[in-house]
Design a protein around this nucleic acid. Structure first.
Length: 733
RNA sequence: GGGCGGUUAGCUCAGUUGGUAGAGCGUCACAUUGACGUUGUGAAUGUCAGAGGUUCAAAUCCUCUACCGCCCACCA
């Protein structure tokens, strides 16, 4: 191998074999695996093994890809952007650490696995939770290896020796400690509050795990004593015994708070109580409604304010409970028309609007309509935590790229609801708590010591729920650096940049800021760089059902990783969605070959002259024309460096591309042909030195974007004491 | 209902602090045994969504309007 062999010092370059490599077009497939191994084996992915000049840390924590399938092209973009930052900073002399990870992705993975079970005619509800866990673990580990191979194929220069999995025992232990600490600080509590319940998956979901879906349903008006009430959900109305109106509504001024009214209802006579609450919209319907606190968030709020009774009507599988009388045991969708029929028969149906358009929350995975339920769950008290996050962002301790995401972040932090962190699924980090079913006692028990309730002496049971994935992911910058266990954390925290998809601005970013500030007093990163969604060529969102999903691996096979990388970056401004056409990637494959041939030309042209370093040639040996070319190059270097420092990757990539092709190749090289072939030795030598210098500078500038082809070319350059391009010094302007 | 973003060449998009519009792809013409045909040279195409304002000067700053996209939402 001629790879890492240093060229013999002070000997003119005249190896006739080297340009041989350039006689055929650049073939990415031939080099990429080998080059990646070379980088990996060099140890330079690990900051501790970088040469001495690398002192100041620069850290990125990779958003851990879900270990439940293949990478999509959005991952490819993320990995590319992060690798560009890391490679740039490494060449600039930073002690760069990029921590890779793999996400067990709790609910997401469990769903993927449940679909697999479904196909096999099995169900998780018939399985022992332990067995289910083991099966999902095996499935995840298999996919994890696959995912890691894809990250490598993208050229990621991350430190695999520090890779973390979100279910590593240490990660679990840290998460447990945080839970306990928050409980002790009064920031985590167990409460019976209304939660989003998916009856298909039989688990509660956070607000970000639900979506709104527009539905058209009939809207019914019923006679309720002296009132007419409107509802789209008659099946919840069995237990309704409060009738609510706005305190300022003059139409109902005669009815007073707390007044009892006897009336006939679905299953017989009841006594209703009048409640006045400002949550009522006087403009909507009749301005009067009855409430179902167990199955509606607004109603729950009203019941909380007025301390009203609440009663469960629908069970956890979506069926009516005995309170529904003759309808008990029926699915709500089947029961609805029958209930309406009965009310009609009793003369209580006033009218029906057939086409009532409204938004209903659905499970973001299966689109099952969310049934709000009151459940005892663990909650994080958000307000005090969010307040710290707002302060940190206002003080510019965290900046957003692009800046408009700051507004979205702040909006989110100013409108927090307490966060339900309990999930009724096995695939996740277990909640280390003991619960008393006889009284309200519930406490974290990390050491598994509690057996009897200190309050009522009943036997305690272990919580069988797991944490919402974001509870641990929210601590990822700390967990991935081994918070509280080693020296990494002290050296590399706070990290520098968090690069992730713009859709995570509310799911993930706020939680990381909150946990970072809460646990360490410092925000976990100073810059949030958000890339947009990668859409198909016509700007449509990629989805399996549309069949327009572009698989990054296919593109790598066809055009090479470098072409994919630079194609994803050029013209892709942060925060804005990208339309990706295969043609664009193809164009950059051609660019790789162009660069390859430029090198061939320069090496051929420089044959016989003594070139040893990649420093700028001495001005004394240069013609004024060549001095000018070098000055222009240096302007470009300064420009590109500034763009990279300011996260304008799309600009820097385009500038270097344009310079290499349309200035260096089209103008400078064309102009050089006559000079190289000419008889004026001074002009010839000057141009040879200039060409070589421009080439090596461009190779360095391009390295973060197209690491494979540049490293391959670098291998073939006649330079003394050559090391890997990956750790070469970034060009000075 | 609220918020955010967009509207620039046929398409996809740049345009950093205001200084007479750019790239890639595509189109057309021409060239070429050249480092590279995975090429080169040249050409065409824009009332920078519309209206008003600030300014010596606006694609860029301000206001309003229209349309498109996305996100959020506890009007039963």
């Amino acid at each position: 191998m001629l790879l890492l062999v240093d060229m013999t010092e002070n000997k003119p370059y005249q190896d006739p074999n080297i340009p041989q490599a350039f006689l055929k077009p650049y073939n990415a497939e031939e080099h990429e695996t080998r080059i990646y191994k070379l980088w990996h084996d060099s140890g330079f992915f690990n900051p501790d093994r970088l040469p001495i000049r690398h002192q100041r840390p620069f850290t990125i924590v990779m958003p851990p890809p879900n270990a439940n399938g293949n990478l999509h092209v959005g991952h490819a973009l993320a990995i590319t952007l992060e690798d560009i930052m890391i490679r740039f900073k490494r060449m600039r002399g930073f002690k760069t650490l990029w921590v890779p990870g793999a996400d067990h992705a709790g609910f997401e993975t469990q769903i993927v696995y449940e679909k697999k079970l479904e196909k096999e005619g099995r169900s998780r509800f018939k399985m022992d939770p332990q067995d289910l866990y083991k099966e999902i673990l095996a499935f995840t580990l298999e996919n994890k290896a696959n995912m890691e191979a894809q990250v490598r194929a993208l050229g990621a220069s991350c430190d695999w020796s520090r890779e973390k999995f979100t279910l590593d025992p240490k990660v679990i232990a840290e998460t447990h400690r945080t839970f306990k600490k928050m409980f002790d600080d009064g920031l985590v509590y167990r409460g019976s509050r209304i939660v989003n319940w998916c009856s298909k998956h039989a688990t509660s979901l956070s607000d970000v795990e639900t979506e709104s879906k527009e539905k058209t349903d009939p809207f019914y008006y019923f006679k309720y004593g002296p009132f007419t009430i409107g509802t789209a959900r008659p099946e919840t109305k069995f237990g309704d015994k409060y009738v609510v109106m706005h305190p300022d509504d003059k139409r109902y001024a005669e009815y007073k708070q707390g007044q009892k009214i006897d009336l006939e209802w679905i299953n017989g006579p009841i006594t209703a109580t009048v409640i006045k609450d400002e949550a009522i919209d006087m403009e909507f319907g009749t301005g009067v409604m009855t409430i179902t606190p167990w199955h509606d968030a607004i109603d729950f709020g009203i019941a909380e304010r007025h301390k009203l009774d609440r009663e469960q009507v629908i069970d956890m599988r979506g069926k009516l409970l005995p309170i529904a009388g003759e309808f008990a045991g029926m699915k709500i969708t089947d029961a609805r028309p029958k209930i309406v029929e009965k009310l009609k028969a009793k003369g209580l149906l006033v009218k029906v609007d057939e086409k009532y358009v409204h938004n209903v929350p659905v499970c973001y995975k299966c689109e099952t309509v969310i049934e709000p339920q009151i459940l005892p769950q663990w909650f994080v008290k958000m307000a005090p935590l969010a307040e710290k996050a707002i302060k940190a962002v206002d003080a510019k301790q965290v900046i957003f790229e692009p800046d408009n995401y700051r507004k979205i972040f702040l909006y989110w932090m100013k409108n927090t609801l307490d966060w339900n962190i309990s999930r009724q699924i096995v695939w996740g980090i277990p909640i280390p708590a003991k619960i008393c079913d006889s009284c309200s006692f519930a406490e974290p028990d990390l050491e598994n010591e509690l057996t009897t309730c200190p309050k009522c002496k009943a036997t305690l049971r272990a919580d069988t729920d797991t944490f919402d994935t974001w509870f641990s992911s929210g601590q990822w910058p700390l967990l991935s650096l081994g918070y509280s266990e080693g020296s990494d954390w002290k050296q590399f925290y706070p990290t520098d940049v968090m690069e992730t998809g713009s859709d995570l601005i509310f799911k993930w970013i706020p939680r990381m800021v909150i946990f970072g500030l809460y646990l360490t007093g410092k925000a976990p990163f100073h810059t949030v760089y958000l890339h947009g969604l990668v859409n198909d060529a016509s700007g449509k969102k990629m989805s399996k059902s549309k069949g327009n999903v572009i698989n990054p691996t296919d593109l790598i096979v066809k055009y090479g990783t470098d072409a994919l990388r630079i194609g994803l970056v050029v013209g892709n401004t942060p925060g804005t969605d990208l339309s990706l056409s295969e043609n664009k990637i193809k164009g950059y494959k051609n660019f790789g070959n162009k660069l390859w041939n430029i090198t061939r030309f320069v090496l051929t042209s420089c044959e016989g002259i003594q070139i040893l370093s990649t420093n700028a040639p001495d001005h004394n040996g240069l013609t004024p024309e060549d001095t000018k070319l070098i000055t222009e190059l240096h302007t470009l270097v300064a420009d590109i460096t500034k763009d990279l420092e300011d996260y304008r990757f799309y600009m820097s990539a385009e500038k270097i591309y344009h310079y290499v092709w349309h200035t260096f190749a089209d103008i400078i090289i064309e102009d050089s042909k006559a000079k190289i072939a000419g008889t004026d030795a001074i002009i010839k030598t000057s141009r040879q030195l200039t060409l070589f210098y421009i080439l090596t500078t461009c190779i360095k500038l391009l390295h973060p974007f197209m690491p494979f082809v540049t490293e391959t070319i670098w291998e073939h350059l006649p330079i003394a004491n050559k090391k890997l391009l990956m750790i070469e010094k970034w060009p000075e302007a």
